[in-house]
Design a protein around this nucleic acid. Structure first.
Lengths: 348, 348
DNA sequence: CTGAAAGCGCTTACAG
DNA sequence: CTGAAAGCGCTTACAG
């Protein structure tokens, strides 16, 4: 086992050192440095001396010690969806994270990114989560086969889930997937399309499953027959979207519109169309879901559903913090998406 | 001040509780739970009893207490470039973060995202950074006017900087901006262009400044005259890139190629071209820098310089961890970019 | 106005 | 093989 400190590295000034420097007890030093008990507690001269000593010694309170005493840390853990690697990639997660940060910033919380991934060793993950280092945790888009979620539900760690399966978790904050997809289908249908395909997302993700289910329901509500050869599933990324679209394009009879479960796969579908020399939307209309920033930059710009990610992430974070600080019960909430009409969809 | 624990929330089992449950000292319990001192230390029956008790009580070691003792936490802080808001947005930072995570994951470190932004209250930031909660810190793309960096340099917290100004920081890991830009200019020139414009990035960012300087140098090396009206500065985002391009397009005499200091602004330039009805690359070639994933999705796909962000971030993180654990000195490193030829650039 | 003491939860020599 | 004790750095009643 290595040394606790390297020899020439003088350790950070401690409360005891500043107290000694002034010749007061560490208790007094602590009181003045924390500004507790209004002014009358400590004489002006002592106070000034302590502050001065702290300054010259470069004293910073040790947060570990402070938190150990206080029983809270003002840090929130974030558990990103587990994929084998590159867990932070994908514009959706990025925006979720950004929304979380926007909110923690105003509350003075820091964020701890859990990097060990969900699937590998749930127990290690729990050690990290439950080791007192975080006051609560935000789980983002857990997979349905997550081993972490059931374990975490038995613990009393305050928790909130963004994009989770209601059958699997409580305290869920997410877009109203069903209403949004229905909205999308109705829009496509209103353009005159009845030959509609769907590129679904990975089915171990709740959002992907419910979007697909809603697609089915929407089609049946509108009395449009489903064509399984126009139904493909991808992985929510560009490449798999392109592959899925290519599979659809292999058919002799082609759909006139394809609804993709997220924007990334829609980008892939656009790629597939371009490389086959097909025009969007003249040959086939393509629609996405999420409205990530680049959605307006593709050619043609993508018609999609705006996913209020920032709002959702902030609401989830705020609810978690309110629960931690005041015990305010957390209630699941659903958010409205909205149609963003651009030019990747057109009249039949 | 609120209660430390809400009434009905029974606190997590403590080492003392498991020791009591078995009827041994907490020292013994600690030893078996940490597997220290090989097997001979504790009798098999005691060991089994402790483990069983820990299991049924749901014991998890408190990391705060452990770290307080150990003097390290196995967490690294990340300080993202300070912008007023949405600090996590931008594909570049996202990739840096992802690269960092990829590396911390293999070393078993967690990440603490510092959300208070650099500019606001440097002292608060220092409290968070120096409070013993992190073993080291990774600063990403600090602004030149950062008040944090000079303060941090005086502290002994292990630190590494990704995309920093060599005049301002040590331990820098970044792409060889100069060589990469020179490479880009030479490439554009080899296509026959001599009327070359540049959309530079925000000049309080070192990467943007040095790219602009390198652009100047490259032009002069090739004996191409600079035309200031073809030189605009943006903010490294799409909108400002579009605006910058529009300013360039206002001239009567137009360049035949424009080199943008990052991909985002190149996307904006592409937008500007499209909305003016101009063709890329027939009317003007556009080149970017970074090769973010969507760069291959624009129309036309963007010619750019591949920025090995993942490699850089991982190297920086690994160096930091090596220093923390073994005292291995950190040395600044520079990484090679490479030309990615796509179709937004063409022969004159 | 100030300090001695206990405690947050753990680990690690050091005795026995 | 096992435990009493000190200590990590802080805060907070409680006395004086």
């Amino acid at each position: 086992m290595r040394e606790k400190r390297r020899p020439n590295e003088k350790s950070r000034a401690t409360l005891k050192e500043v107290a000694n420097a002034v010749g007061v007890s560490i208790c007094t030093a602590s009181v003045v440095l924390n500004n507790s008990h209004s002014g009358s507690r400590v004489s002006e001269s002592t106070r000034a001396a302590v502050i001065e000593a702290a300054r010259t010694l470069g004293y910073r309170a040790n947060q570990l010690a402070r938190s150990l005493h206080a029983g809270h840390t003002h840090v929130l853990g974030v558990v990103p969806a587990a994929t084998d690697t590159n867990i932070l990639l994908g514009p959706h997660l990025q925006h979720v994270l950004n929304g979380i940060v926007n909110e923690t910033e105003v509350h003075g919380y820091d964020l701890s990114l859990i990097t060990r991934c969900d699937q590998s060793k749930p127990s290690d993950l729990l050690d990290a989560l439950l080791g007192g280092r975080m006051d609560g945790v935000i789980v983002v888009a857990p997979r349905s086969n997550s081993r972490l979620i059931p374990l975490l539900r038995n613990e009393k760690l305050p928790m909130v889930v963004i994009d989770g399966d209601p059958d699997q978790c409580d305290n869920i904050f997410e877009i109203d997937n069903e209403a949004s997809v229905l909205n999308a289908i109705r829009y496509i249908h209103s353009l005159g399309h009845t030959k509609i395909g769907h590129i679904a997302g990975p089915q171990d993700l709740y959002a992907a499953r419910i979007r697909k289910d809603a697609f089915f329901r929407g089609m049946s509500m509108l009395g449009i027959p489903l064509r399984t050869e126009w139904l493909q599933v991808g992985l929510f990324d560009v490449v798999s979207g392109e592959e899925a679209m290519n599979r659809i394009l292999k058919n002799d009879d082609l759909p006139t519109a394809v609804f993709c479960a997220n924007d990334e796969m829609a980008f892939g579908a656009l790629n597939a169309m371009h490389s086959k020399g097909l025009r969007v939307p003249e040959d086939i209309s393509i629609m996405g879901f999420d409205d990530v920033p680049v959605a307006s930059l593709t050619s043609p710009p993508l018609t999609t559903i705006k996913h209020p990610v920032d709002e959702i992430a902030r609401a989830a974070t705020a609810a978690l913090i309110n629960y931690i600080e005041d015990g305010t019960p957390i209630t699941s909430r659903t958010f409205l998406g909205s149609l963003v009409e651009r030019s990747s969809t057109g009249n039949l």
